[in-house]
Amino acid sequence: MVNFNGNLIPQEEAKLSITNRGYSYGDSLFETIRVLNGKVIFWEDHYFRLMSSMRILRMDIPMAFSPEYLETQIKETVQSKSLTNARVKLQVHRKEGGLYSPKDRGIEFIIMATELKEPFYMGKDQAYEIELFKDHYLTSGLLSSIKSNNKLINILGSIYAEENDYANCLLINENKSVVEALNGNLFLVKGNVIKTPPISDGCLNGVTRKQLINIIGKLEDYTLEEASISPFELQKADELFITNVIVGVQSITKYRKKEFENTTAKSLLGKLNAHARLS
């Protein structure tokens, strides 16, 4: 089942017009959300990021779009597929009409759910080699921080990674700073300092990124820095890891000739699981 504007319908009956603005112009946003044992984890952060992103794109937010309403819609969609643990995609697009200038700033929404087998973040030990993707740059600034449907750089980077047998790639901005991975935020560990690029560099305002920043900020053994990361710092790091709401924490094992530890990443993964249970 698919939830279209609050109505549950069979997936094969869910159709979009060819003039849909998300398709025609990328005039759309989405949230990737994890449901754990029927509970929408980190929902408050997802909700406020969605509202903030809709305001940035100057979409008209419906009065009904309360946290309670959308959370209920997510849960009903998950339950309609008899799922306990699920990956949910909540997509918002502006209503049809107009060219670049929309005829109607109102929105419609779609919620889809697929099964996740593991209830918690597992942190699998596996080779995970990455490389820089330098064919195209992210642009620093506010628009890059939202989850819009404009993901061409991520698509091209994913093709590059697949063609060259890399597990992932790191994206850079116009200032040649390392911004994020294809599918999540980047953290770098050097000694007792953990760095992650600032939002102003163009990285996604990630929900899991926010959770880890809060967790690290309470640790006595580490200092957190939100600061630009140069490509030269990557090979000097003790650890590199990627975060997103589905995987949690993904350790990078190799970048070029440098191989990395994963001690800090494993510790943070355990703390993230505990935090998720309490959210």
Rank of each mutant, 00 (worst) to 15 (best):
M1I: 11
N5E: 14
L8V: 02
L8R: 08
L8C: 03
A14Q: 04
K15N: 15
L16S: 13
S17G: 02
I18D: 05
N20M: 07
R21A: 08
R21M: 09
G22Q: 10
S24A: 15
Y25A: 07
Y25R: 01
G26Y: 13
F30N: 05
F30A: 12
E31D: 06
R34L: 05
G38W: 10
K39W: 08
E44N: 13
Y47P: 01
Y47Q: 00
R49H: 00
S53V: 01
M54E: 14
I61A: 03
P67R: 00
E71T: 04
T72Y: 15
K81T: 09
K81W: 07
S82K: 14
S82F: 13
V88P: 04
Q91V: 10
K95W: 08
G97H: 06
L99G: 11
S101C: 12
K103F: 09
G106S: 10
I107E: 11
F109T: 04
A113V: 03
L116M: 13
P119N: 10
F120Q: 13
Y121N: 05
K124Y: 06
A127P: 08
A127C: 08
A127I: 14
F133G: 08
K134H: 06
Y137G: 01
T139F: 15
T139E: 15
T139A: 15
S140N: 11
G141K: 06
S144A: 13
S145I: 07
K147I: 06
N149V: 09
N149D: 14
S158G: 15
I159L: 14
E162M: 14
E162V: 05
L171H: 06
L171T: 03
I172S: 14
N175M: 10
V178L: 03
V179K: 06
V179I: 12
A181P: 09
N183A: 14
G184N: 10
G184E: 09
N185W: 03
V189H: 06
N192H: 05
N192Y: 00
V193I: 14
V193H: 08
K195G: 01
S200M: 07
S200G: 08
G202F: 04
C203P: 04
G206F: 00
V207C: 05
K210V: 03
L212A: 08
N214F: 09
I216G: 07
K218Y: 11
E226Y: 00
S228I: 09
K236H: 09
K236G: 03
A237D: 01
D238A: 07
D238H: 06
E239F: 00
E239W: 11
N244V: 01
N244R: 02
N244T: 01
I246A: 07
I246W: 13
V247T: 15
V249K: 06
I252L: 03
T253S: 07
K257M: 11
N262K: 10
T263H: 11
A265Q: 04
K266I: 01
K266H: 08
L268P: 09
L268Q: 09
L272D: 03
N273S: 00
A276T: 03
A276C: 05
A276R: 00
